[in-house]
């Protein structure tokens, strides 16, 4: 129905040039990774709700939303958008930087507006707008929390995500924030932002180290696995677990004052909504929106947790 309406609008625009200015439909393509883990699921949810809301607000805008399960599929999606829908703007959250750089560059060359979200491309200066979370900041905020929560120092373990630039930046930020403190990182292993993997890794950390004061799970999905492993082992030495991203269940536990989850660090999946909204506004109003838009990571504490709790989001 939507397609029919836009097709009709296009037909009118072509047949009556005088009215073209007002009736012209502009198409925004949104290409994001599929919901394969919690954060991506939240991101999908926010992308969909943003698209629905904006289609209602701006009748002259049409959206194409595509989710891809791997980089190659994402490249195909983007090529199809250009070829068959003649998009005027692209909002893309690249699966991986390198493989997507060329195709996005082509979109740019076709004259469309390009908004890149979360992961930068391999070549600078392609995008008109860059919306991203602050990965070094994400690590830094977490590190600072550990320094404050363990003033006497302590032994901690770290669960890392899937080996990527994002993960590296976060861990570097984290380590930098801990420099000069007495907090000692006993070990770091990849839990791949996955509950089952982090459960296994944490079990082995618990076998390996007799004394662990706290855990940086670096992600709320991984925090779930870590908590399960600690509970199973019945270990009393671990004082708290710090996750990340702001999953609703975890924010709820912070809100409720759970001693094991005293805080969380945001890395909002809603950044995709910000990117889509800003792009739409720029396209409709012509107001200047190009540049960089970095969404800082904030520490969620029992005091401010209510502001970060989205009960309707799947994440």
């Amino acid at each position: 129905m939507k397609h029919l309406a836009s097709g009709l609008a296009l037909a009118i625009a072509l047949s009556t040039p005088a009215l073209a200015q007002e009736a012209e439909t502009r198409v925004i393509g949104v290409s994001i990774p599929a919901a394969t883990h919690g954060w991506a699921g939240g991101m999908n949810y926010f992308a969909q709700t943003a698209v629905e809301r904006l289609e209602a607000t701006y009748p002259q805008l049409d959206f194409v939303l595509a989710t891809a399960s791997d980089p190659a599929k994402q490249v195909n999606d983007i090529e199809d958008m250009v070829a068959t829908r003649k998009i005027d703007a692209l909002v893309v959250l690249p699966f991986e930087s390198e493989p997507l750089t060329g195709p996005v560059q082509n979109v740019k060359a076709s004259g469309a507006w390009v908004t890149v979200v979360d992961r930068g491309l391999a070549v600078e200066g392609i995008e008109d707008l860059y919306v991203a979370g602050d990965n070094p900041g994400f690590g830094r905020v977490a590190g600072e929390y550990f320094a404050k929560a363990l003033p006497e120092g302590g032994k901690i373990v770290v669960l890392r995500g899937i080996p990527t630039t994002i993960d590296n930046e976060r861990v570097e930020g984290f380590q930098k924030a801990l420099e000069g403190t007495n907090v000692e990182i006993l070990g770091m292993e990849h839990g791949n932002w996955n509950r089952d993997d982090s459960f296994t890794v944490m079990q082995d950390f618990l076998s390996k180290y007799p004394q662990i004061d706290a855990v940086w799970a670096s992600d709320d999905d991984m925090a779930v696995g870590v908590l399960g492993a600690i509970e199973a082992a019945g270990r009393e030495d671990v004082k708290f677990v710090l996750g990340g991203a702001g999953m609703k269940e975890m924010v709820k536990r912070v809100m409720d004052g759970d001693a094991m989850i005293p805080a969380d660090v945001t890395y909002p999946p809603a950044m995709i909504a910000t990117a889509i909204e800003v792009t739409a506004a720029g396209l409709v109003s012509g107001a200047p929106v190009s540049g960089q838009f970095i969404i800082g990571s904030v520490l969620i504490t029992p005091e401010n947790a209510a502001n970060f709790h989205y009960p309707d989001s799947p994440f």
């Binding site: 599929a34 919901a35 919690g38 991506a40 699921g41 939240g42 999908n44 949810y45 509950r195 999905d221 989001s313 799947p314 994440f315």
Partner: peptide
């Protein structure tokens, strides 16, 4: 994925 609405 559908049952979980993309989440958990």
């Amino acid at each position: 994925t559908w049952l979980a609405d993309g989440g958990t």
